[in-house]
Protein backbone atom coordinates (compact mmCIF):
# COMPACT_ATOMS: atom_id res chain seq x y z
CA UNK A 1 0.00 0.00 0.00
CA UNK A 2 2.75 2.42 0.82
CA UNK A 3 4.30 1.72 -2.56
CA UNK A 4 1.01 2.50 -4.22
CA UNK A 5 0.75 5.69 -2.24
CA UNK A 6 4.28 6.67 -3.20
CA UNK A 7 3.52 5.94 -6.83
CA UNK A 8 0.38 8.05 -6.66
CA UNK A 9 2.40 10.81 -5.00
CA UNK A 10 5.04 10.59 -7.69
CA UNK A 11 2.42 10.76 -10.41
CA UNK A 12 0.85 13.65 -8.61
CA UNK A 13 4.17 15.48 -8.34
CA UNK A 14 4.84 14.90 -12.01
CA UNK A 15 1.58 16.56 -13.02
CA UNK A 16 2.09 19.24 -10.38
CA UNK A 17 5.08 20.48 -12.33
CA UNK A 18 2.88 21.16 -15.33
CA UNK A 19 -0.22 22.21 -13.46
CA UNK A 20 -0.80 25.28 -11.35
CA UNK A 21 -3.26 23.77 -8.91
CA UNK A 22 -0.77 22.05 -6.64
CA UNK A 23 -2.89 21.09 -3.65
CA UNK A 24 -5.43 19.31 -5.84
CA UNK A 25 -2.94 16.64 -6.88
CA UNK A 26 -3.81 13.13 -5.95
CA UNK A 27 -7.21 14.19 -4.68
CA UNK A 28 -10.05 11.78 -5.28
CA UNK A 29 -13.25 13.58 -6.23
CA UNK A 30 -16.64 12.03 -6.83
CA UNK A 31 -18.84 13.69 -9.45
CA UNK A 32 -22.57 13.00 -9.56
CA UNK A 33 -23.79 14.27 -12.93
CA UNK A 34 -27.50 14.62 -13.80
CA UNK A 35 -27.29 12.75 -17.09
CA UNK A 36 -26.71 13.68 -20.70
CA UNK A 37 -30.03 15.27 -21.62
CA UNK A 38 -28.47 18.09 -23.64
CA UNK A 39 -25.36 18.79 -25.64
CA UNK A 40 -24.26 21.29 -23.04
CA UNK A 41 -24.54 18.66 -20.30
CA UNK A 42 -22.42 16.25 -22.32
CA UNK A 43 -19.84 19.01 -22.82
CA UNK A 44 -19.85 19.76 -19.08
CA UNK A 45 -19.10 16.09 -18.39
CA UNK A 46 -16.21 15.92 -20.85
CA UNK A 47 -14.76 19.25 -19.69
CA UNK A 48 -14.97 18.12 -16.04
CA UNK A 49 -13.10 14.93 -16.91
CA UNK A 50 -10.37 16.79 -18.80
CA UNK A 51 -10.07 19.42 -16.05
CA UNK A 52 -9.61 16.66 -13.47
CA UNK A 53 -7.03 14.92 -15.63
CA UNK A 54 -4.97 18.07 -16.17
CA UNK A 55 -4.86 18.65 -12.41
CA UNK A 56 -4.00 15.06 -11.54
CA UNK A 57 -7.30 14.56 -9.79
CA UNK A 58 -8.73 11.07 -9.65
CA UNK A 59 -12.33 11.61 -10.76
CA UNK A 60 -15.04 9.09 -9.97
CA UNK A 61 -17.95 9.74 -12.31
CA UNK A 62 -21.58 8.72 -11.78
CA UNK A 63 -24.35 9.40 -14.31
CA UNK A 64 -27.73 9.66 -12.56
CA UNK A 65 -29.92 9.31 -15.67
CA UNK A 66 -32.11 12.24 -14.53
CA UNK A 67 -33.05 10.55 -11.24
CA UNK A 68 -32.46 12.05 -7.80
CA UNK A 69 -32.42 8.66 -6.09
CA UNK A 70 -29.50 7.66 -8.32
CA UNK A 71 -27.66 10.83 -7.32
CA UNK A 72 -28.27 10.16 -3.62
CA UNK A 73 -27.06 6.58 -4.08
CA UNK A 74 -23.96 7.81 -5.88
CA UNK A 75 -23.18 10.35 -3.14
CA UNK A 76 -23.60 7.67 -0.44
CA UNK A 77 -21.24 5.50 -2.49
CA UNK A 78 -18.67 8.31 -2.66
CA UNK A 79 -18.92 8.80 1.13
CA UNK A 80 -18.41 5.07 1.71
CA UNK A 81 -15.35 5.14 -0.54
CA UNK A 82 -13.96 8.02 1.50
CA UNK A 83 -13.40 10.47 -1.36
CA UNK A 84 -11.77 13.83 -0.66
CA UNK A 85 -14.58 15.90 -2.15
CA UNK A 86 -17.88 15.55 -4.00
CA UNK A 87 -19.22 17.53 -6.95
CA UNK A 88 -22.98 17.41 -7.53
CA UNK A 89 -25.05 18.84 -10.35
CA UNK A 90 -28.41 18.52 -8.56
CA UNK A 91 -31.28 17.38 -10.80
CA UNK A 92 -33.90 18.99 -8.53
CA UNK A 93 -33.66 21.66 -5.81
CA UNK A 94 -35.23 19.81 -2.89
CA UNK A 95 -34.58 16.69 -0.84
CA UNK A 96 -30.83 16.94 -0.30
CA UNK A 97 -30.64 17.59 3.48
CA UNK A 98 -30.15 13.98 4.63
CA UNK A 99 -27.48 12.89 2.20
CA UNK A 100 -25.53 16.17 2.36
CA UNK A 101 -25.59 15.99 6.17
CA UNK A 102 -24.06 12.53 5.89
CA UNK A 103 -21.29 13.99 3.74
CA UNK A 104 -20.81 16.79 6.24
CA UNK A 105 -20.51 14.33 9.15
CA UNK A 106 -17.87 12.46 7.13
CA UNK A 107 -16.04 15.78 6.66
CA UNK A 108 -16.27 15.63 2.89
CA UNK A 109 -16.76 19.04 1.25
CA UNK A 110 -19.52 19.21 -1.36
CA UNK A 111 -19.55 21.61 -4.31
CA UNK A 112 -22.73 22.22 -6.28
CA UNK A 113 -22.31 22.65 -10.01
CA UNK A 114 -24.52 24.63 -12.36
CA UNK A 115 -27.71 24.47 -10.28
CA UNK A 116 -28.60 25.38 -6.70
CA UNK A 117 -30.59 23.63 -3.98
CA UNK A 118 -33.19 24.69 -1.43
CA UNK A 119 -31.72 24.16 2.01
CA UNK A 120 -29.26 25.47 4.58
CA UNK A 121 -26.15 26.95 3.00
CA UNK A 122 -23.82 25.14 5.40
CA UNK A 123 -24.65 21.85 3.67
CA UNK A 124 -22.17 22.64 0.90
CA UNK A 125 -18.81 24.35 0.62
CA UNK A 126 -19.70 26.45 -2.40
CA UNK A 127 -21.72 26.41 -5.60
CA UNK A 128 -20.42 27.18 -9.07
CA UNK A 129 -23.04 28.46 -11.49
CA UNK A 130 -23.63 31.00 -14.20
CA UNK A 131 -25.74 34.09 -13.62
CA UNK A 132 -28.58 33.66 -16.10
CA UNK A 133 -29.89 37.18 -15.57
CA UNK A 134 -26.43 38.46 -16.42
CA UNK A 135 -26.38 36.34 -19.60
CA UNK A 136 -29.55 38.08 -20.74
CA UNK A 137 -28.11 41.43 -19.71
CA UNK A 138 -24.90 40.86 -21.74
CA UNK A 139 -26.99 39.94 -24.81
CA UNK A 140 -29.19 43.01 -24.36
CA UNK A 141 -26.19 45.30 -23.81
CA UNK A 142 -24.66 44.02 -27.06
CA UNK A 143 -27.82 45.01 -28.93
CA UNK A 144 -27.91 48.44 -27.24
CA UNK A 145 -24.29 49.06 -28.22
CA UNK A 146 -24.82 47.76 -31.75
CA UNK A 147 -27.97 49.63 -32.83
CA UNK A 148 -27.02 52.82 -30.89
CA UNK A 149 -29.88 55.30 -31.38
CA UNK A 150 -31.50 53.59 -34.39
CA UNK A 151 -35.07 52.36 -33.90
CA UNK A 152 -35.03 48.61 -33.37
CA UNK A 153 -37.97 46.21 -33.10
CA UNK A 154 -36.93 42.95 -31.47
CA UNK A 155 -38.59 39.55 -31.60
CA UNK A 156 -37.81 37.19 -28.75
CA UNK A 157 -37.69 33.39 -28.77
CA UNK A 158 -38.22 32.31 -25.19
CA UNK A 159 -37.17 29.05 -23.64
CA UNK A 160 -39.67 26.60 -22.17
CA UNK A 161 -42.43 28.55 -20.43
CA UNK A 162 -41.85 28.73 -16.69
CA UNK A 163 -38.30 27.33 -16.75
CA UNK A 164 -35.72 29.23 -14.71
CA UNK A 165 -33.33 30.03 -17.58
CA UNK A 166 -36.22 31.36 -19.68
CA UNK A 167 -37.44 33.63 -16.88
CA UNK A 168 -33.95 34.88 -15.99
CA UNK A 169 -32.67 35.38 -19.52
CA UNK A 170 -35.82 37.33 -20.39
CA UNK A 171 -35.44 39.46 -17.27
CA UNK A 172 -31.78 40.27 -17.91
CA UNK A 173 -32.37 41.26 -21.53
CA UNK A 174 -35.28 43.51 -20.56
CA UNK A 175 -33.12 45.17 -17.88
CA UNK A 176 -30.40 45.91 -20.41
CA UNK A 177 -32.69 47.50 -22.98
CA UNK A 178 -34.85 49.31 -20.40
CA UNK A 179 -32.87 52.53 -20.80
CA UNK A 180 -33.11 52.56 -24.59
CA UNK A 181 -36.49 53.81 -25.75
CA UNK A 182 -35.57 53.03 -29.36
CA UNK A 183 -35.42 49.27 -28.67
CA UNK A 184 -38.74 47.51 -28.15
CA UNK A 185 -39.69 43.84 -27.95
CA UNK A 186 -42.64 43.54 -30.32
CA UNK A 187 -43.19 39.79 -30.17
CA UNK A 188 -42.23 37.11 -27.71
CA UNK A 189 -43.09 33.43 -27.94
CA UNK A 190 -41.71 30.17 -26.64
CA UNK A 191 -39.58 27.95 -28.88
CA UNK A 192 -39.08 25.33 -26.14
CA UNK A 193 -35.27 25.61 -26.50
CA UNK A 194 -35.38 23.42 -29.65
CA UNK A 195 -34.30 24.03 -33.23
CA UNK A 196 -37.52 22.96 -34.91
CA UNK A 197 -39.75 25.03 -32.62
CA UNK A 198 -37.39 27.97 -33.05
CA UNK A 199 -37.81 27.69 -36.80
CA UNK A 200 -41.59 27.28 -36.64
CA UNK A 201 -42.10 30.22 -34.27
CA UNK A 202 -39.80 32.45 -36.32
CA UNK A 203 -41.86 31.61 -39.42
CA UNK A 204 -44.90 32.85 -37.52
CA UNK A 205 -43.11 36.06 -36.46
CA UNK A 206 -42.04 36.75 -40.03
CA UNK A 207 -45.58 36.33 -41.38
CA UNK A 208 -47.05 38.44 -38.60
CA UNK A 209 -44.57 41.28 -39.12
CA UNK A 210 -45.08 41.92 -42.81
CA UNK A 211 -42.67 39.28 -44.06
CA UNK A 212 -40.08 40.32 -41.49
CA UNK A 213 -39.51 43.78 -42.91
CA UNK A 214 -40.30 45.44 -39.60
CA UNK A 215 -38.01 43.20 -37.53
CA UNK A 216 -34.56 44.58 -36.71
CA UNK A 217 -33.24 41.92 -34.34
CA UNK A 218 -33.88 38.44 -32.95
CA UNK A 219 -33.05 37.55 -29.36
CA UNK A 220 -33.15 33.80 -28.67
CA UNK A 221 -32.80 32.34 -25.17
CA UNK A 222 -30.55 29.64 -26.56
CA UNK A 223 -28.40 29.04 -29.63
CA UNK A 224 -30.39 26.06 -30.90
CA UNK A 225 -33.55 28.14 -31.34
CA UNK A 226 -31.45 30.81 -33.08
CA UNK A 227 -30.02 28.22 -35.49
CA UNK A 228 -33.57 27.12 -36.38
CA UNK A 229 -34.76 30.73 -36.71
CA UNK A 230 -31.85 31.60 -39.02
CA UNK A 231 -33.16 29.01 -41.50
CA UNK A 232 -36.65 30.50 -41.29
CA UNK A 233 -35.23 33.99 -41.98
CA UNK A 234 -33.37 32.65 -45.02
CA UNK A 235 -36.53 30.90 -46.28
CA UNK A 236 -38.37 34.22 -46.07
CA UNK A 237 -35.81 35.76 -48.43
CA UNK A 238 -34.05 37.89 -45.82
CA UNK A 239 -30.43 37.87 -44.70
CA UNK A 240 -29.94 36.78 -41.10
CA UNK A 241 -27.09 38.72 -39.51
CA UNK A 242 -27.66 41.86 -41.58
CA UNK A 243 -31.39 42.29 -42.36
CA UNK A 244 -32.21 40.83 -38.98
CA UNK A 245 -29.55 40.85 -36.26
CA UNK A 246 -29.29 37.57 -34.33
CA UNK A 247 -28.11 37.37 -30.72
CA UNK A 248 -28.47 34.30 -28.50
CA UNK A 249 -27.03 32.54 -25.46
CA UNK A 250 -25.04 29.32 -24.76
CA UNK A 251 -22.10 29.23 -27.18
CA UNK A 252 -22.71 25.82 -28.81
CA UNK A 253 -20.44 24.91 -31.77
CA UNK A 254 -23.09 25.39 -34.48
CA UNK A 255 -23.72 29.03 -33.57
CA UNK A 256 -20.01 29.75 -34.14
CA UNK A 257 -20.36 28.29 -37.65
CA UNK A 258 -23.29 30.65 -38.18
CA UNK A 259 -21.33 33.62 -36.81
CA UNK A 260 -18.38 32.73 -39.07
CA UNK A 261 -20.79 32.69 -42.03
CA UNK A 262 -22.18 36.08 -41.02
CA UNK A 263 -25.64 34.64 -40.32
CA UNK A 264 -25.56 35.27 -36.58
CA UNK A 265 -24.02 38.23 -34.79
CA UNK A 266 -23.34 37.37 -31.18
CA UNK A 267 -23.64 34.67 -28.54
CA UNK A 268 -23.14 34.76 -24.78
CA UNK A 269 -21.25 31.75 -23.55
CA UNK A 270 -22.65 29.52 -20.84
CA UNK A 271 -19.34 27.89 -20.03
CA UNK A 272 -19.33 24.11 -19.64
CA UNK A 273 -16.27 24.55 -17.43
CA UNK A 274 -17.99 24.63 -14.04
CA UNK A 275 -15.56 22.11 -12.63
CA UNK A 276 -12.41 24.23 -13.10
CA UNK A 277 -13.42 26.90 -10.57
CA UNK A 278 -14.77 24.13 -8.30
CA UNK A 279 -11.43 22.27 -8.35
CA UNK A 280 -9.57 25.56 -7.69
CA UNK A 281 -11.78 26.28 -4.68
CA UNK A 282 -11.33 22.73 -3.38
CA UNK A 283 -7.56 22.87 -3.82
CA UNK A 284 -7.32 26.12 -1.84
CA UNK A 285 -9.64 24.73 0.81
CA UNK A 286 -7.60 21.54 1.19
CA UNK A 287 -4.29 23.39 1.20
CA UNK A 288 -4.83 25.95 3.94
CA UNK A 289 -8.53 25.89 4.71
CA UNK A 290 -9.45 28.92 2.61
CA UNK A 291 -13.23 29.03 2.59
CA UNK A 292 -14.42 30.10 -0.87
CA UNK A 293 -17.39 32.44 -1.35
CA UNK A 294 -20.74 30.62 -1.16
CA UNK A 295 -21.59 31.41 -4.78
CA UNK A 296 -18.95 31.37 -7.48
CA UNK A 297 -20.33 32.99 -10.64
CA UNK A 298 -18.79 31.93 -13.94
CA UNK A 299 -18.00 34.50 -16.59
CA UNK A 300 -20.68 35.23 -19.21
CA UNK A 301 -18.43 36.01 -22.14
CA UNK A 302 -19.74 37.60 -25.30
CA UNK A 303 -18.52 36.24 -28.65
CA UNK A 304 -18.94 38.06 -31.95
CA UNK A 305 -17.45 37.74 -35.43
CA UNK A 306 -14.35 39.50 -34.06
CA UNK A 307 -13.58 36.62 -31.67
CA UNK A 308 -12.34 34.02 -34.16
CA UNK A 309 -15.62 32.06 -34.47
CA UNK A 310 -13.97 29.39 -36.66
CA UNK A 311 -11.39 28.71 -33.98
CA UNK A 312 -14.05 28.62 -31.28
CA UNK A 313 -15.99 26.08 -33.34
CA UNK A 314 -12.90 23.87 -33.67
CA UNK A 315 -12.24 24.11 -29.93
CA UNK A 316 -15.78 23.06 -29.06
CA UNK A 317 -16.78 20.47 -31.62
CA UNK A 318 -15.05 17.59 -29.80
CA UNK A 319 -16.60 18.34 -26.42
CA UNK A 320 -19.77 16.37 -27.01
CA UNK A 321 -22.18 19.28 -27.63
Amino acid sequence: MSILKKLALAAGLATALSSAAMAADGMTVGFSQIGSESGWRAAETSVTKSQAESRGINLKFADAQQKQENQIKAIRGFIAQGVDAILVAPVVATGWEDVLNEAKEANIPVVLLDRGIDGPEDLYLTSVASDQVKEGRVAGQWLVDTVKDKDCKVVELQGTVGSTPAINRKKGFEEAIAGSKNITIIRSQTGDFTRSKGKEVMEGFLKAENGGKGICALYAHNDDMAVGAIQAIKDAGLKPGSDILVVSIDGVPDIFTAIAAGEANATVELTPNMAGPAFDALAAYKKDGTVPPKFIITESKLYTAADDPKGEYERRKGLGY
Binding site: E37, S38, D192, T194, R195, S196, K197, K199, D224, V227, G228, Q231, D254
Partner: peptide, 14 residues
Protein backbone atom coordinates in the same frame (compact mmCIF):
# COMPACT_ATOMS: atom_id res chain seq x y z
CA UNK B 1 -38.92 15.33 -42.76
CA UNK B 2 -38.36 16.80 -39.31
CA UNK B 3 -34.61 16.14 -39.48
CA UNK B 4 -34.35 17.53 -43.02
CA UNK B 5 -36.26 20.62 -41.96
CA UNK B 6 -33.66 21.71 -39.39
CA UNK B 7 -30.76 20.04 -41.24
CA UNK B 8 -29.98 18.04 -38.14
CA UNK B 9 -31.12 15.08 -36.05
CA UNK B 10 -32.10 16.21 -32.56
CA UNK B 11 -32.58 12.92 -30.70
CA UNK B 12 -33.71 14.65 -27.52
CA UNK B 13 -36.53 16.65 -29.06
CA UNK B 14 -37.49 15.26 -32.48
Amino acid sequence: IVAGDIRGADANNA
